[in-house]
Amino acid sequence: MSTSLTTQPPSPAVRSKQPRPAKQRKGGVRAWATRAPLLPALVFLIAVTQLPFVATLVISLFDWNSLSPDERKFAGLSNYTSVFTDPELRDSVLTTVLLTASVVIATVVLGLLLALLLDRAFFGRGMVRTLLITPFLIVPVSAALLWKHALYNPEYGLLNGAWTWIAGLFGDDSPAQPDWISGMPLIAVEAALVWQWTPFMMLILLAGLQSRPADMMEAAHLDGASGWQSFRYLTLPHLRRYLELGVLLGSVYIVQNFDAVFTITSGGLGTANLPYTIYQTFYQAHEYGLASAAGVVVVIGTMIIATFALRVVSSLFREEANRA
């Protein structure tokens, strides 16, 4: 009678006490050696970005006015309550939403039209593309000053000059010279932002158009699909991720915009968005705690939008990898 011996696998406790293979230890050392040059940059990034945010978070919990430093006291979450209940701050939130939504929608539509134009082959396409990208390369403050003085000025602005010339063609030699900024302040800010951010949307959507499968478009053309049908059923679904990415990134940038509002209207006439109101609260009212709380709210909102943007980008990368 023969007996068969079965070997039992070692228990997890025994396995944990066993030494790790030399190859695995070398792999871990090599991985740390690869990451080591990045550690100073990581430490610097944390020191520059995260420590100030932590300081802002701490200050937001205090009732702190720089004009009365001895009266500083812990306020808990009362500053955050004021952010959502103060009429001025609430109006600035609504202005921010309206400004962001209108600018993003306009830039996406115009960017899509320009991307469709540049996706076609024509003489001088490279020069046209460079000229259309130029507004995005201008410093935001310079762009706002350009619109305020070169275009909107009621005495020597180009808009009123063009208005006078068009009126002269119809026999009106002295037409009214509108003051564009005081007459429609929010539209004036929106127009400057649309002009500057449309090239950004155009670049994203143009990249999406040029990534379309050529065989799919050729098959649709051979099957007799019209240009509108190809755009509606093939191009537009393909651009969905790129449109989402453009909307999310555009929202992140426009929500934080300060330059155009500060330069063109100085926050007056109902154009004060949340970043400008935070500036007023901090530098003019000297309410450090309230301004810090509003800043934290903006950062959290921006992080939420950026999280969705990163998910869209990662999905785009996965789709491109699967297609390759």
Rank of each mutant, 00 (worst) to 15 (best):
S2F: 14
S4T: 12
L5F: 02
L5W: 03
T7S: 06
A13T: 05
V14E: 15
V14G: 03
R15G: 04
Q18S: 12
Q24G: 01
R25K: 15
K26G: 12
G27T: 04
G27K: 10
R30G: 11
R30Q: 14
A31F: 10
A31V: 01
W32M: 05
R35D: 06
A36M: 11
L38F: 14
P40L: 08
P40M: 08
A41H: 04
L42E: 12
F44G: 12
A47T: 09
T49C: 15
L51W: 06
A55V: 11
A55K: 09
L57Y: 07
S60G: 02
W64P: 03
N65K: 11
S66Y: 09
P69L: 10
D70W: 09
D70C: 01
E71G: 06
R72A: 13
G76E: 03
N79P: 09
N79D: 04
N79R: 06
T81I: 11
T85L: 10
D86H: 07
P87D: 08
E88G: 15
R90S: 13
R90Q: 10
R90G: 06
S92H: 00
T95G: 01
T95D: 05
T96G: 03
T96M: 09
L99C: 05
A101M: 14
S102T: 14
S102Q: 13
V104S: 01
I105C: 11
A106F: 03
T107F: 05
T107I: 04
L110S: 07
L112Y: 14
L114R: 07
L116A: 12
L117M: 14
L118Q: 02
L118W: 05
D119P: 00
A121H: 14
F122D: 05
F123G: 11
G126K: 13
M127E: 11
V128D: 00
T130E: 09
P135D: 01
P135C: 00
F136G: 04
L137Q: 04
V139G: 07
A143W: 03
A143H: 00
A144S: 14
P154N: 11
Y156I: 15
W165H: 11
G168P: 08
L169H: 11
D172A: 07
A176N: 04
A176Q: 11
Q177P: 03
Q177S: 12
P178V: 00
D179C: 03
G183D: 06
L186M: 12
W197N: 09
P199Y: 10
F200W: 05
M202A: 02
S211P: 02
R212E: 12
P213Q: 04
D223C: 13
A225C: 09
S226N: 07
G227S: 15
G227R: 12
R232T: 03
R232S: 08
R240C: 09
L243I: 15
E244G: 09
G246T: 02
V247D: 06
V252K: 05
Y253K: 07
I254M: 01
N257H: 05
F258C: 04
F258Q: 04
F262Q: 08
G267D: 06
L269S: 15
A272C: 09
Y276D: 01
Y279P: 05
Y283G: 07
Y283Q: 13
H286E: 10
Y288P: 00
G289W: 02
A291T: 02
A294M: 06
T302P: 04
T302D: 03
F308P: 08
A309E: 11
V312I: 08
V312A: 12
S314N: 14
S315C: 07
S315H: 10
F317Y: 13
A321V: 08
N322E: 15
R323N: 07
R323Q: 10
R323H: 08
